[in-house]
């Protein structure tokens, strides 16, 4: 199992906590770094702004990206990630409340690796996150790992 971190871009602390718990229950022990909005997310990834001095040298194993975010929203963040050489192949999973057709289509067009709608029902939510963690942390071979 990779020891690389998971980057969670989430402005809602409740959702953050629920996601952490879900990952825990699924047995995911990787560090989860959390940023609160799109700007922070990009600063984190590109070591810019107030996170310029971040010591970790590797990219996260996966980015769990909410769409509705303050400042830069999820779509803009995703486009920025895909436009940069360094992060072009970084796995990005959209984790959001929206089930709008447009959001789904837009996300895949912009290069999202997966799109998961956060269900209200706890069991469903935990199950979705568990599967995500399993897939992206245990099974998927990201280009950066080779």
């Amino acid at each position: 199992m990779s020891t690389r971190v998971i980057l969670l871009v989430e402005d809602n602390p409740d959702d953050e906590l629920l996601t952490r718990r879900a990952l825990e229950r699924a047995g995911v022990v990787n560090t989860v770094d959390v940023v609160r909005d799109g700007v922070e997310a990009l600063d984190y990834l590109f070591r810019e702004g107030k996170l310029a001095g971040r010591d970790c040298s590797t990219l996260p194993a996966v980015v769990l990206l909410d769409l509705k975010l303050p400042r830069l929203d999820g779509h803009q963040v995703l486009r920025a990630i895909r436009e940069d050489e360094r992060t072009r192949f970084l796995p990005v999973v959209i984790l959001t409340s929206s089930s709008e057709e447009e959001d789904i289509v837009q996300s895949y067009r912009d290069g999202a690796n997966s799109y998961v709608r956060k269900p209200v029902r706890a069991e469903e939510f935990f199950e979705a996150v568990r599967q995500l963690g399993l897939y992206w942390l245990l099974l998927n071979e990201a280009p950066g790992d080779v």
Binding site: N12, D14, D15, L18, E100, K118, P119
Partner: peptide, 21 residues
Amino acid sequence: AYSVSHDLRAPLRAIDGFSEA
């Protein structure tokens, strides 16, 4: 309605999620 519906779902998820927890 769209944006409210989205925003309303988050607290519901929290209620259900933490109740379950």
